[in-house]
């Protein structure tokens, strides 16, 4: 186990390094940050000054080395745009995105699992067909479009929910969370649902597929033959077995949700990390992009680690491997 963890950590370091290099080269290829950030009024002398001030006058490899040197001391650089430490900017925005992603994941499980279970147990009933057909909507319509439709219906037409933004927040341990207030929840409902749509469909489909398959397994047949009640068979034997793919995908999707919350956050003006990264990409704020990607990579690696550990707990056939 220790060897396993140590190895994962080393790999994580490598991934982060590759990521930072990619972003450096990538941003260099996309465009010149000064060209984007500088006021159109600026003359050539002011442009040269800005290039120097942002440290962009050095050759790219030198800029990268400077960055690495500072990063090793825990300094990921200052945002070109905000002149604040990139890490701090991201951490400030993180709670907003986390609560949105958690809300979406929760919604996906709460809605997706029962529906999928039903559709799997009664694959030929009209209700099941209805569920499956509707679930297609979840991933075929572009997120931005569904987002606007949600706003049109629930905020503009019905007036039930606030259209955009994040609601009232409560401070816990120096971070601000909005899911503890009524206003906060009201603001969160639509973006969380918007973000969850794809996941709900995914969970429904995975659960259904899993259930159908497991019902035909010998141990399930055996359990039924033994005269166990259908609900016991369903919830103990079947459910436990289908959790593996669902856990994989939901775990995996949690990271993806954070990385893909970009569109939802910009449609709903949700002040999270996704909004920050899209704004940073739009102005080529490299320090923020690098820091953001590094944090996300670490997050992914952690989640995958957790998923792998969960595997071994849920299914003894899968072992964590120190060495192959």
């Amino acid at each position: 186990m220790t060897v396993f963890l140590l190895r994962r950590l080393l790999q994580a370091g490598g991934v982060v390094l590759v990521m930072s290099l990619l972003v450096f080269v990538g941003v260099f290829a996309i465009g010149d940050p000064v060209e984007i950030l500088i006021s159109p009024e600026a003359d050539q002398i002011e442009r040269e000054r800005a290039v120097k001030a942002l440290g962009l006058d050095l050759p790219l490899w030198q800029q990268y080395l400077v960055f690495l040197g500072k990063a090793l001391q825990g300094d990921l650089g200052r945002s070109f745009v905000f002149n604040e430490p990139a890490l701090q900017l991201i951490l400030q925005r993180m709670p907003a995105t986390l609560e949105l992603a958690l809300g979406a994941t929760l919604a996906a499980l709460v809605i997706g699992l029962p529906l999928g279970l039903y559709a799997g147990l009664r694959p030929h009933s009209p209700v099941s067909r209805g569920i499956m057909a509707t679930s297609i909507l979840g991933f075929s319509l572009p997120t931005f479009w569904v987002g606007l439709m949600l706003i049109m219906v629930f905020a503009v037409q019905l007036g039930w929910l606030p259209s955009t933004g994040r609601g009232e927040t409560v401070e816990i341990l120096g971070t601000r969370w909005s899911f503890l207030t009524r206003d906060g929840l009201a603001h969160m409902a639509m973006p969380a649902l918007n973000l969850a749509l794809f996941k709900i469909s995914l969970v429904i489909r995975l659960t259904r597929a899993g259930v159908r398959e497991t019902m035909l397994m010998d141990y399930v047949k055996f359990a039924r033959a033994k005269g166990l009640s259908p609900s016991r068979v369903t919830f103990v034997h079947v459910f436990k077995n289908i959790l593996i793919p669902v856990v994989t995908v939901v775990g995996l999707e949690f990271g993806g949700t954070i990385a893909f919350s970009v569109v939802t956050e910009s449609v709903f003006a949700w002040p999270g990390m996704g909004k920050l990264i899209i704004d940073s990409i739009n102005v080529l704020d490299r320090p923020v992009m690098v820091a953001y990607l590094m944090i996300i990579v670490l997050l992914f690696i952690t989640i995958n680690l957790l998923v792998d550990i969960t595997y071994s707990v849920l299914d003894p056939r899968v072992r964590l491997e120190g060495k192959s």
């Binding site: 790999q11 991934v15 990521m19 290829a29 996309i30 993806g256 990385a259 992914f300 690696i301």
Partner: peptide, 24 residues
């Protein structure tokens, strides 16, 4: 390990940024 870390790298890379780089 190598393949899965590559997967991690890829999944955490925002599609938009990847597309922007490929475009560039």
């Amino acid at each position: 390990g190598a393949i899965m870390r590559l997967v991690d790298l890829q999944l955490s890379f925002p599609a938009i940024l990847a597309a922007l780089m490929i475009l560039a």
